[in-house]
Design a protein around this nucleic acid. Structure first.
Length: 626
RNA sequence: GGGCCCGUGGCCUAGUAUGGAUAAGGCGCCGGCCUUCGGAGCCGGAGAACCCGGGUUCAAAUCCCGGCGGGCCCGCCA
């Protein structure tokens, strides 16, 4: 690794000058070299002298040392800045990238370790909306990145096929005269979500008798047998097929679909419940408004204790969501004696089978030792997730391995909410999406809007292309735009979706990244010359900037398994593309003289590899032409 | 009432985890760049008391305390 070699050399020099704590970091600005040390600040404090003096003395002591990649060391206002021999350093950077190709930036950090990621997990009664897409894109990116750094990742999608939201649909189909098939041209998930669910839940709110009927339906669905149970299974399956199509369109893939009903019928709860009782972590309330319920004792928890104990088993004997999630969490950590049976549900577009839990299935999947479980769930579930984690801890399970990857939701701008026919109250700036009220923007419709918008641009540029080719490219642009928009902001910041804003394909957007890639492809395609890794002379500033950026990719990814931050990677992609475009303007490749041309071709090729690797991690599709 | 999160030019954001060198971009605005490596691009300009007040430190957008504003969570729902 070129950068690592540079840093190791800087460290060696510092140690030779008597510095014990090198405190090396990447320089903030190219004028300060590549690598800087802050060691003089610490020493200055100890010695009660000025940092600048101390830094200068350290630099003087290093002068006589042997240097390979480092050409110059300077003391500036207390900083010790290392400048590389750019001729050697560039060659080292380019050689590594061209040699490693698709593997550049990857590592074996996670070798032998398995991580479970659960994401998407949308109730199977409606189509995906943009808020769900944030979940899917984050989860899928986590999976891609962790695989790239060597982890064995298993992606789960939890399907809650047995709640009241399903009963609404069944009530609509059996009692309120909704036909089982959608009108011509409408997808089944959209029909269920946009029409049946919204209309039925409104009727249920207005009519107590319907609420009663729905309650009976919930019971029958959960019983695991009967006509309504069978009908529900068919509805779930049809909606799920449509939902997964949308996920595939976003580029996400799955390994296992876990049905809530199977978790119930496997009855892992009973096992966990027994342990909770044995350890006296739960108790049965005898009096008060929660009489007859089994509660989890939260009194020892510093914060949760303030809100009272958690009901796990209701007075009627049924379990709450949190109870089932505790049992399910124990299963994910491999801490239950029973395991699911599976059958093959389908195959991901890029290959790889998807299994679904199925008590009649023939397949056993042993997940074995789990390094970590990452649950991508929005921030509103922080409290219940904390209860689950706390319960695991009380049970003596490895709760520190159970991670709630919390992200903020996607809300509608006032303008878009009004466009959807929602009456916005006076001071409201944002409006939260609501499945029950039918107030949401679907992933499919947003992608279609983006694709149509992109198609206009493609048409302008490629009149000679076939319609299919134009549509295929426009589709990739749409997916790139949406994924980037959902991944770029901090996970703990609310995204206010503004459709006018997101339809913009210029500036800091996914298409900008894709465009930069296509530009690089054009240059390489037009040249017959062999790229070279050797600079004929000191590289230009724009060349150095790009080389520097490419060189830090392995370092950028090296801490990922600890911090799980996707945003810095999206940020990196943008800076990389932006610096390439700067290079593109200022350093002509094909028109340059022979030796310079070959070096620049090397840079362009390395850029193409580096950007492609990063965009793959983010799930942003690549195109040679757009 | 208790808890969690956010607060950076007109708007949207990066930088905050590991405190350090003139606070970095995008949108919008103003002005430039197509005799060709694709203008979905590039360059220049105007525009910021980094919410407020304390504190720690040689050094604070970043850490600590207290406010203010916004969002979320606190159900025998999931």
């Amino acid at each position: 690794m070129a950068l690592r070699k540079l840093m190791e050399e800087a460290e060696r020099l510092l140690r030779s000058a008597g510095v014990d704590e090198p405190r090396l970091e990447l320089s903030r600005d190219p004028r300060y070299g590549e690598v800087s040390s802050l060691a003089a600040f610490d020493l200055a404090k100890k010695l009660r002298r000025s940092p600048n003096e101390v830094a200068s003395e350290i630099v003087d002591r290093m002068r006589s040392e042997e240097m390979e990649f480092i050409k110059d060391v300077e003391a500036v206002r207390g900083y010790i800045n290392f400048k590389p021999d750019w001729i050697r350093y560039s060659e080292e950077i380019l050689r590594e990238i061209l040699e490693k190709g698709e593997k550049y930036g990857s590592s074996e950090m996670g070798a032998g370790k398995r991580i479970i990621i659960e994401h998407t997990s949308v109730n199977p009664n409606k189509p995906l909306h943009v808020g769900h897409a944030r979940n899917t894109c984050l989860g899928d990116s986590l999976a891609r990145i962790l695989r790239f750094i060597g982890y064995d990742v298993v992606v789960l999608n939890y399907i809650d096929d047995s709640g009241a939201q399903m009963a609404d649909l069944i009530l609509g189909f059996t009692e309120l005269g909704y036909p089982l098939d959608p009108p011509q041209g409408m997808r089944f998930d959209e029909y269920c979500g946009d029409v049946v669910y919204v209309e039925v839940s409104k009727k249920v709110e207005e009519d107590e008798r319907l609420a009663e009927k729905r309650k009976r339906i919930v019971g029958e669905i959960e019983s695991g047998r009967g006509k309504l149970y069978q009908l529900n299974r068919r509805v779930v399956e049809r909606v799920l097929r449509d939902q997964i199509k949308t996920c595939w369109r976003l580029g996400a893939t799955y390994n296992i679909l876990n049905l809530e009903s199977q978790i119930i019928s496997l009855n892992i709860w009973r096992e966990v419940f027994e342990k909770l009782k044995e350890k006296r972590l739960v108790y049965r309330a005898e009096t008060g408004e929660k009489a007859g319920c089994w509660l989890l004792d939260l009194s020892k928890h510093p914060i949760l204790s303030k809100e009272g104990d958690e009901v796990l088993v209701r007075s009627d004997g049924t379990t709450t969501y949190v109870a089932r999630d505790i049992a399910y969490a124990a299963w994910k950590l491999g801490e239950t004696s029973k395991d699911f049976k599976y059958s093959v549900w389908g195959v991901n577009p890029g290959g790889g089978e998807i299994y679904i839990t199925d008590e009649a299935g023939e397949v056993d999947l042993k997940l074995g030792e789990i390094d970590r479980v990452i649950n991508v769930i929005d921030v509103r579930q922080r409290r219940p997730q904390e209860v689950v984690k706390y319960a695991l801890k009380l049970l003596g399970l490895r709760s520190e391995k159970y991670i709630h990857y919390a992200y903020e939701v996607v809300a509608l701008s006032r303008k878009d909410a009004e466009r959807l026919g929602h009456r916005v109250e006076g001071g409201e700036k944002i409006v939260h999406m609501s499945g029950r009220r039918g107030l949401y923007i679907k992933v499919e419709e947003l992608l279609d809007m983006l694709r149509d918008r992109a198609l206009e641009e493609v048409k302008k540029r490629h009149e000679d292309w076939s319609v299919e080719r134009m549509r295929s490219v426009a589709e990739k642009i749409a997916v790139g735009a949406l994924r980037y928009a959902l991944i770029k902001p901090d996970i703990d910041k609310l995204i206010v979706l503004d459709t006018d804003e997101i339809l913009r394909l210029e500036g800091d957007t996914g298409p900008y990244l894709q465009y930069s890639y296509a530009r690089a492809c054009r240059i390489l395609e037009k040249s017959e010359d062999e790229p070279s890794t050797k600079p004929p002379a000191e590289p230009l500033e724009v060349e150095k900037k790009l080389l520097r950026r490419m060189a830090i990719l392995p370092k950028l990814l090296s801490g990922f398994d600890q911090n799980l931050l996707i945003k810095p990677i999206a940020n990196y992609a943008y800076k990389l593309a932006s610096e390439f475009n700067d290079f593109y303007e200022k350093a002509p490749v094909l028109r340059a003289q022979e030796d310079i041309k070959r070096f620049r071709l090397g840079i362009v090729m390395a850029f193409k590899i580096t950007l492609a690797n990063v965009l793959r991690l983010l799930g942003i599709p690549l195109m040679e032409e757009m």
